[in-house]
Amino acid sequence: MRVVISAVGRLKAGPERELAERYRDRAAKAGRAIGLRDVEVIEIRESRAQEVDRRRLEESIALANLMPEGSVLVALSERGASFDSASFARQVAAWRDNGRPAVMFVIGGADGLSPDLEARAGLTLAFGAATWPHQLVRIMLLEQLYRAVTMLAGHPYHRS
């Protein structure tokens, strides 16, 4: 199964990008042992539209156009479900075991995702009730993917 994280905005060079890449690389390498083909991050440009709804719509269309055929769509939103790490790992395993070719996580920009894209998602996921900057959400998602992979592989990274 392929894991794709599609995000509005670009992480600039610096500690955030380095940390995100470190977790992406770890998840990709460790994921091979449990049937993950790749973990990739795709960044799209922020819309220049003046109106919030138009910006959200343009960004959401660009994100939706990146969706691999047959993939599960997971929207990151503060209105989503909160999973503990073990539950998240079980969900990743279920997608893999059900033969899904890919799972695509989408992270909106400053204005979030369009309601239509959120409604299309098979799962809407939150990292708690707080609103997080999209740069940190990307890092937290990559860390949780790495944690899920290590849990599924029986690696001692996660401690209960």
Rank of each mutant, 00 (worst) to 15 (best):
I44Q: 01
A119H: 11
L141K: 12
V137Y: 03
H134K: 03
V103R: 05
M67Q: 14
L142V: 12
D84M: 13
G122N: 09
V52Q: 02
H134R: 05
G80S: 04
P133T: 06
A86Q: 14
G112Y: 07
H134A: 02
Q91G: 04
G109Q: 01
Y23Q: 02
E43L: 05
E118R: 09
L11M: 15
L145M: 13
S82L: 11
E21N: 07
E18H: 13
V52W: 11
M151G: 10
A94C: 12
S60C: 06
R138H: 07
D38R: 11
R90P: 15
R96N: 09
V72W: 10
D38K: 11
V149F: 13
L145W: 15
L142E: 15
G80A: 02
R48N: 14
T124K: 14
G122Q: 13
R79F: 11
L152N: 10
R10M: 06
E143N: 04
N98P: 09
D38I: 00
L66D: 06
H134D: 01
A126C: 03
D38E: 11
R55T: 02
S47R: 05
E118T: 01
R147Q: 15
A75L: 07
E59H: 01
R56A: 00
A49D: 05
A93G: 03
V41F: 14
Q91L: 15
G109Y: 02
G35C: 07
G31L: 09
D111K: 09
G128Y: 03
E59Q: 01
G109R: 01
S85E: 11
R120H: 05
D111E: 12
Q135T: 13
L141R: 14
R45V: 02
R96W: 10
A49I: 00
Y146I: 05
A20K: 07
E51L: 08
A28T: 09
V39L: 09
V106P: 02
P133S: 03
G70Y: 15
S85V: 06
A93V: 09
E51K: 12
Q91A: 10
A81P: 13
G35E: 08
L125R: 04
V52F: 06
I61D: 06
T124P: 05
D25M: 12
A30L: 13
R17I: 01
A126P: 02
V41N: 10
V41D: 08
R54Q: 05
R26S: 07
A75P: 05
R138V: 05
D53S: 09
T150V: 04
P15V: 15
R138I: 01
W95R: 13
R90I: 10
E18G: 11
F127G: 08
A81L: 15
L57G: 06
A20T: 08
L117N: 04
G31T: 12
E58R: 08
A130D: 04
A153Y: 14
E143C: 03
R32W: 00
S114D: 08
P68H: 02
G122F: 00
S71F: 15
R48I: 08
R54K: 07
V74M: 04
P15C: 14
S60Q: 02
E51R: 10
E118A: 03
G128F: 04
G128M: 03
V149C: 07
A153W: 14
V74A: 10
P115M: 04
L123T: 04
N65R: 09
Q91S: 08
S85F: 05
K12V: 12
L113R: 13
A126Q: 01
